[in-house]
Design a binder for these strands. Sequence first.
RNA 1: GGGCGGUUUGCAGAGUGGCCAAAUGCAUCAGACUGUAAAUCUGACGUCUCCGACUUCGGUGGUUCGAAUCCACCACCUCCCA
Length: 395
Amino acid sequence: MEIFEELKERGLIAQVTDEKEIRELINGGGARFYIGFDPTADSLHVGHFMALCLMKRLQQAGNRPVVLIGGGTGYVGDPSGRSDLRSMLTPEIIEHNCACFKKQMERFIEFGEDKAIMVNNADWLLKLNYVEVLREVGTCFSVNNMLRAECYKQRMEKGLSFLEFNYMIMQSYDFYHLHEAYGCNMQFGGDDQWSNMLGGTELIRKKTGKDAYAMTITLLLNSEGKKMGKTAKGAVWLDENKTSPYEFYQYWRNVDDADVMKCIKMLTFIPMEQIREMEKWEDSRINEKKEILAFELTKLVHGEEKAKTAMAQAKAAFGGSTDNLPEKDVKVESATIIPVLVAAGICASNGEARRLIQQGGVSLNDSKVTDINTPVKSGDIVHKGKKVHIKINLV
RNA sequence: GGGCGGUUUGCAGAGUGGCCAAAUGCAUCAGACUGUAAAUCUGACGUCUCCGACUUCGGUGGUUCGAAUCCACCACCUCCCA
């Protein structure tokens, strides 16, 4: 099966500038493509993960990827799809985030001669001269068109600063620069990047008369139309210090029934034949699908060892066993249930812990806690609701 | 540059001198029912030494017995006129 057709069947393709050309290009391995990543945080998240997987798939099909780290665009901030101004990042934070990205990416993509390369747009954007850019690039953009762009729509109501308005131009300039410097002929990105990417293809056409292409990846939305990869606490991170392999596993183990197949198709590398087979499975096997999804993804992100551990911990926690449970070192003054719950990060405050107990939401070693002064020993298992099960180690 | 309006507990959004820890919706958490799903119902949802006390309503001061509410100044934001 050709790569373009596979991407299509997996539902990964959202928009393309020229389907016929793009198909030929990537199926034939002739694409030199880039994807940009802005260093807005110190870890990658699920959205980045999809982009990296796409890179991997295309690389396997013989295309050559360029990873662009937005060390320069990070100074500006992309307003696409946002209703408010991003907080401005300091140069130190941007640099730190770039370094973190780089480290994480090296685990997914092979870099080296004839393989993928990594560039940082700070290298060319930061030294640009304002007037020169205006004359060279500014003439190629129509403000009328830019204002109509989908990505600014939300911001037209609440206000858009000139700083952010320029983001599109910077991203377009990146594409142009990579086209000239590395022969980059294609850009991929999240679907919210569409207008920015078109800006780049337009700029290249106007400056060089050549065609370049753009394709966006479908945003991973759940059945309610919300972005996936977000929890109440924030994003699901790829960094295990920010989202543990167990939490990562649990996130995918708990997706809605309606979203399982979509996630399997879009996020895993399970061959399509096998996926088509899974689609025929009866409803009763829905939990089996979720286990596969969770395991496969955890394996991709954290490695097979940790994925196995996470799965074992999950099986233990929900199978009633006391072996293999996630453990937590806890340091408390008095070893009773309330301070332990707080110190273990299960509850945010003493009051919350107290209420939870009063409502019957906490168990200790399989018996419901009714007394708020119940003592806790090292090795005790604390249960909050039916999903949180942790073995406590007092230190 | 001038004028209006705004800034409330995770978000949205009420409240315009005491009855306000602050309506309501969403999100979240727990209980019941389940399949570690969804839907539904119930409860909780600032902090604490929790029948009570304490700290909050952009910031700083002030008026008052008493302020989220009134006044002054500062910061940020929308809109309107230039």
